[in-house]
């Protein structure tokens, strides 16, 4: 029986879709059977981040409306045979799907997949309600900025009110240099404010931009963000992975001599 994980944030632009793509790809790399669902109807993005936009024939709305079978709408990933995408519809609006339909869909996919990762749209309206309807657990993504943290807090409140069993926090786009100089909240500051379990910290990494451009998630690469995402995947699977030292410089000598604390 699979697990449905919703990736949500409240605020837009904090990296939900990037996180969905990387966590999904990472879990597939770890030999899990994974399906990603884009629930942002009308503003789909996950397909381009995954580089699968040219394969779309059917979408989420077609599935819930019964225009096709689920299997017909699932797009197999370019690189991993055990990773699939269910894209959202671009030409419809959020009301095309109801929370009840999403729940039925998630329950059905659970029989087939180990993990169902649901990319949630920004906001707290219909799209959010659809995304969390069938979810067993949530990953709340935020950046260390006042606006994003405040919205994350609101989202956590809503998830708790909807009796989400497990809620974990991902602090995205952390700038180590700014944290050091005191000009950015640290991940522990954010963790303290939001008071939920921190499951990962992803540093701001220009490699993410490159990987998004190419439509290939960088999870598992030796870029810092790639390592961070892989660690999150392992923690999702229940492994106890220590948090990496983001201040350490890459390279052989720094590994030997660089750390002082």
């Amino acid at each position: 029986m699979g697990e449905v994980i919703v990736v949500t944030s409240g605020k837009g632009g904090v990296g939900k879709t990037t996180t969905t793509a990387n966590v999904g790809t990472g879990l597939a790399k770890l030999d899990k059977k994974v399906v990603l669902i884009d629930t942002d109807i009308g503003l789909r993005n996950l397909d381009v981040v995954m580089g699968l936009e040219n394969r779309i024939v059917y979408n989420l709305v077609d599935v819930v409306e019964g225009n096709c079978r689920i299997k017909q709408a699932l797009i197999k990933d370019k690189r991993y045979n055990n990773l699939y995408l269910l894209p959202s519809a671009q030409t419809r609006d959020k009301s095309a799907v109801t929370p009840e339909q999403m729940k039925v869909l998630c329950d059905e996919l659970k029989n087939e997949f180990d993990y169902i990762i649901v990319d949630c749209p920004a906001g707290i309206e219909q799209g959010f309600k659809n995304a969390i309807a069938g979810a067993d657990r949530a990953l709340v993504v935020t950046t260390p900025e006042v606006s994003a943290v405040r919205d994350a807090d609101r989202i956590i409140g809503l998830l708790e009110a909807n009796e989400m069993k497990k809620i974990d926090l991902i602090v995205n786009r952390l700038r180590v240099d700014l944290v050091k100089s005191g000009d950015m909240m640290s991940s522990s500051d954010v963790e303290e404010i939001l008071a939920i379990n921190l499951i990962g910290v992803v540093p701001d990494d220009e490699n993410i931009v490159v990987s998004t451009n190419q439509g290939e998630p960088l999870v598992g690469s030796d870029a810092k963000a790639g390592i961070a995402y892989m660690n999150i995947c392992k923690r999702i699977m229940g492994e106890d992975v220590p948090f990496m030292d983001l201040t350490a410089k890459k390279g052989f000598f720094s590994k030997l001599f660089g750390k002082k604390n």
Binding site: R154, S181, G182, M185
Partner: peptide, 20 residues
């Protein structure tokens, strides 16, 4: 006071008043 701390304190205040 660093701006990071300012952010943290402002947030705490905002969130507590949001909730209350």
């Amino acid at each position: 006071k660093s701006s990071g701390d300012v952010a943290k304190n402002r947030l705490k205040l905002v969130l507590s008043s949001d909730k209350a």
